[in-house]
Nucleic acid binder design. Structure first.
Lengths: 360, 360
DNA sequence: TTGTAAGCGTTATCAG
DNA sequence: CTGATAACGCTTACAA
């Protein structure tokens, strides 16, 4: 058990140098110390078991004199409580944790809630101390603005890097999904199978820009194939919430569109629930309706344990790890450049879609 | 914008005292300073906007001289990746966050993985710095021992408080569930409905002690009613995993026990999946089989959006908040007493159970 | 009850 | 290229 901490002074004594020379050497400051000394000091430091993390407090104290920010290896992850048990968030989180852990960073998970008062007062004390290096924010419209404002106003955080997920934000880097491509892949696949009347469910839980982009993607798929979206793209507003009678809602949607042979679902969870409801109504997927989702995070197993759910895959782990990388880059580099990274979706064809066959 | 930090010296000047007197006063050290001074200093400090969290680094630095632990308002939450998207973990997490956030504490979410090397090297650097005040550990047998050992060996953490969830551990406080009562409630309810042959699925994912206790609870329920568990309690080993053919497995289990009219499920998720598989086989719940789960975290909705799933409820939020409270108590109090708290389950009767009716 | 001196471990400044 | 000095803000030991 290393009883006493090894300090720079110990190293200095051992090397016959001054403490400050050691300080320079350890930081590799070539303009104040020779390369030879640097090497010698570093070797000795390693040998003696010098651990910079032990003297973090001293370093912090010293640096606040010059208003220099110091890396604490701690970042905050903001997300709504409701997303916690969604598989897609679990995957994103996994992606982030992988990158963060590899660098020794810790993840401070934070939830804010309008019901609990002003956001600034809900932030852990660590923020005020300036011990949080950056943040990844996954929040829906309403929360996001207020949250980011709160962070910017917190003097311990101020202008530190923020990465937003799924939506851009002024002054932040972000990791986005190409929602036009998502819609295009979904609709294109169905059109290529010969389906000509598609029903899209516009989930209210989706924020405006993403929904707009998806629909644009649908239309684009029609036009790219010389078809008229006005004629074949049917949009049904849909509130997907616990407590809704899925079968009744599904029945209603389908009866209003007898020509429809395929369904565009905004995400897997909703789509699979809907598919199950259709089965309950006596319809068969894909015999009666082809269905395609988004995410590839949920499964619909057939009796052989095979996943039959055709979907547009969003690489959630990648999104998470890209966000973390972006954040760490900005923390390390200090460059105030706001990068946006756009993640491309990909189509995963399984058995919930098949070529159209004419209605009797 | 508070450009310059207010320090104890500023307050001292304002009050015409020495810095050390202010230090004593702010900490309420009655043996070194008069109550009058304390009040005066504190009032002035508040007026000037003195913020102790700003000088945390200085305090840390000073205290490490006397090996005094200082509260950082940061605790670690350990859990397996696989549990992340389980609703029950989401609820526990919510319970913990509520308590922690109310005290300004931050939650450092940590996952360890044997595949990534020794646990000690996977810990965020914050541990080595001694900036983590305590930990809540939710890990299955295999991980738990190694993880807690790693924490104890980390010189920056050493003997700081740990609270384990669901299972006790030497030298830790813990929040436990009364699994005998869980089993007793499940089986007792079915027996009271007149069922005499119960099939229990012993999920392999459950750790040994909990499984043993549940089964003891089943037997107890029989004996309390003057019935013989040997005659009516049937146990079926069951591997519940993705990729399994649920219908086939279910078929097999039921065919082996023709007298069975009710099913004891180890948790909701598995039970509801199984119930759906039974529906697919043409059975009806509860007409053909009464089913009861554990957790009350998952729902099985009927066509009216009503949850029909009868289950034994484990108050996950309470478990989480109790664990956090236990931890904060030990962090604040410093008492090295290891408390175990046992949480009682409760029966929630819905429509997946009904009185037995004789088989044709 | 109050004040003085010293030090926690580091680094910016400036002189050699 | 190297080193002495001072300072970051706080608290313990000891003296007044």
């Amino acid at each position: 058990m290393a009883r006493k901490n090894v300090t720079q002074r110990d190293i200095a004594e051992k090397c016959g140098l001054s403490v400050i020379a050691v300080s320079y050497a350890l930081r590799g400051d070539r303009s104040n110390v020779s390369q030879a000394t640097i090497d010698r000091v570093r070797r000795e430091a390693r040998r003696m078991g010098y651990d910079p993390s032990r003297s973090h407090a001293a370093r912090r104290l010293r640096y606040q004199r010059t208003d220099t920010e110091i890396v604490n290896q701690l970042v905050a992850l903001f997300f709504p409580f409701g997303e916690m048990h969604q598989p897609y968030w679990a995957y994103m989180f996994e992606g982030m944790q992988g990158v963060l852990a590899a660098q020794g960073f810790g993840a401070l998970t934070c939830n804010v809630d309008v019901a609990r008062g002003p956001f600034r007062e809900q932030l852990p004390v660590l923020f005020r101390r300036g011990e949080v290096d950056g943040a990844i924010v996954f929040a829906t419209e309403q929360y996001r603005d207020e949250l980011i404002t709160a962070l910017r106003e917190e003097s311990g955080f101020r202008s530190r890097p923020i990465v937003t997920l799924m939506e851009p934000f002024e002054g932040c880097s972000s990791v986005l999904v190409d929602d036009v491509a998502v819609g295009n892949l979904q609709a294109g696949h169905l059109l290529d199978l010969g389906h000509r009347h598609l029903l899209a469910f516009r989930s209210e839980r989706y924020n405006a820009p993403a929904v707009r982009d998806r629909i644009e993607g649908y239309s684009l798929a029609f036009r790219e194939r010389g078809l008229d979206p006005e004629a074949g793209l049917h949009i049904w507003p849909w509130i997907w919430d616990r407590g809704i009678d899925l079968q009744e809602a599904a029945q209603q949607a389908l009866q209003g569109h007898p020509a429809v042979t395929a369904l565009l679902c905004p995400n897997d969870a909703m789509g699979i629930d809907l598919g199950r409801a259709l089965s309950g109504l006596g319809y068969r997927v894909p015999r009666d309706y082809s269905m395609v989702g988004v995410d590839d995070t949920d499964v619909w197993l057939d009796r052989n344990g095979q996943n039959i759910w055709t979907t547009v895959r969003l690489p959630m782990r990648d999104i998470g790890s890209r966000a973390a990388s972006l954040l760490l880059d900005r923390i390390a580099g200090g460059r105030p450049t706001y990068t946006s990274e756009i993640i491309s979706p990909s189509l995963v064809v399984r058995q919930s879609t098949r070529p159209v066959r004419p209605r009797c």
